[in-house]
């Protein structure tokens, strides 16, 4: 399977690393032989139609290395659209940073791939948060797979649990914690009685929060995930602009203490039921969603099976890369099982 990796940050690098390090398992268990024909990032690309040698790809994942260090494969100034037309590949792995205002550059990357009949695995929430109904429609029109397991819950299969393991159930609603950083901050305030500011500072030093924590503390990140979940699982047709979103900036230590006295804990909850919103909410301390640290958790309320909760790490390079792997294996299976229509472009053309 020929792959092009677009975006070479934490998730892009981790994905390449996992693909190379687990190639034997992928081959023997799934007949998936990953061949990375391109790695594209803002300052250029590594390209080789016959596959960038695994040891080169692996070495490129080293943070201290730059793309131009691999002269043999380095191409400066590439345009993805042109590259996709030139290179033969079956799947694009899109891992550029999330932008929740415009969805770019991910949005253009996805559209370029679809136009060229290239299947997609993405971990980028931006394009989906902004234009998911349009993207799903375009993928369908172009008969390409669009997989995005890694956009929600990191490596924890939240989307797949709902979509694949709940056949026959009606999901009445779901609610959960979809952002690790804010959960870390709230847990810290709860357990150690520290202020929001100092909890945030600690999250920063531990690398959980970014220099600009806006997407996390103002709840845009969990809102984006909620949009994806609501659209995919509940059949909504939403964009992040349609949501009511409230972050945790205004949560005072007094609020946390008062909740604690009442046997409750304040959590940043994304919910999809009567209302679709993200907001801080006091939940009973014995509630399954009362998880601490950077953990994510999601509870589905189903008609026949009652409440089902899934808990796991919500972020992390390798964890998210495992979701990419899952999606790739899934796409691999569709190639093997389906008719020519669902075949990758290259086989359809033959």
């Amino acid at each position: 399977m020929r792959l092009i990796v677009v975006g070479f940050g934490v998730v892009g690098r981790s994905s390449v690393k996992v693909l190379v390090e687990h190639q034997e398992m992928l081959r023997s268990r799934y007949g998936l032989i990953p061949k990375i024909v391109g790695i594209v990032d803002i300052d250029g690309a590594l390209v080789n139609q016959r596959g960038i040698p695994p040891e080169v790809a692996l070495s490129a994942t080293d943070r201290s290395k730059k793309m131009e260090d691999f002269k043999e494969y380095f191409v400066p100034d590439v345009r993805l659209n042109g590259l996709l037309e030139e290179l033969d590949c079956e799947v694009m792995i899109e891992t550029t940073p999330t932008n929740l205002e415009t969805g770019q550059p991910g949005l253009n990357h996805l559209r370029a791939a679809m136009k060229n009949g290239v299947d997609i695995v993405t971990t980028n929430k931006g394009p989906l948060a902004i234009a998911m109904p349009a993207l799903v429609e375009l993928a369908d029109h172009n008969k390409v797979s669009l997989r995005f397991s890694g956009t929600v819950g990191g490596g924890t299969p939240m989307l797949d649990l709902a979509k694949r393991c709940m056949d026959g159930l009606k999901i009445r609603s779901f609610m959960g914690i979809l952002n690790g950083t804010t959960n870390y901050i709230l847990s810290k305030m709860d357990s150690e009685g520290v202020s929001f500011e100092s909890a945030l500072e600690e999250a920063r030093t531990k690398g959980y929060a970014e220099a600009d924590p806006t997407y996390d503390v103002d709840a845009l990140d969990p809102a984006a995930k909620l949009v994806i979940m609501a659209n995919w699982v509940m059949g909504k047709s939403l964009s992040i602009k349609d949501l009511s979103i409230k972050g945790i900036r205004d949560i005072k230590i007094e609020d946390i203490k008062r909740a604690k006295m009442e046997g409750k804990a304040i959590k940043l909850i994304a919910s999809c039921g009567d209302k679709i919103e993200v907001a801080p909410l006091a939940i009973p301390r014995n509630h399954p969603l009362n998880v601490s640290g950077t953990i994510n958790a999601l509870t589905f309320d189903t008609d026949l099976a009652g409440e089902i909760t899934i808990v796991g790490k919500g972020a992390g390079g390798i964890e998210t890369a495992s979701a990419v792997l899952r999606d790739l294996i899934d796409i691999r299976k569709t190639y093997a099982h389906s008719s020519m229509v669902a075949m990758p472009r290259i086989l359809r053309r033959a």
């Binding site: 109904p133 349009a134 429609e137």
Partner: peptide, 18 residues
């Protein structure tokens, strides 16, 4: 639209967005 020339159908979600 799709490429059903002569009587093309719009992809409504993409169209609305654009």
């Amino acid at each position: 639209t799709d490429d059903n020339f002569g009587s093309a159908e719009p992809l409504m979600n993409v169209t609305s967005m654009q």
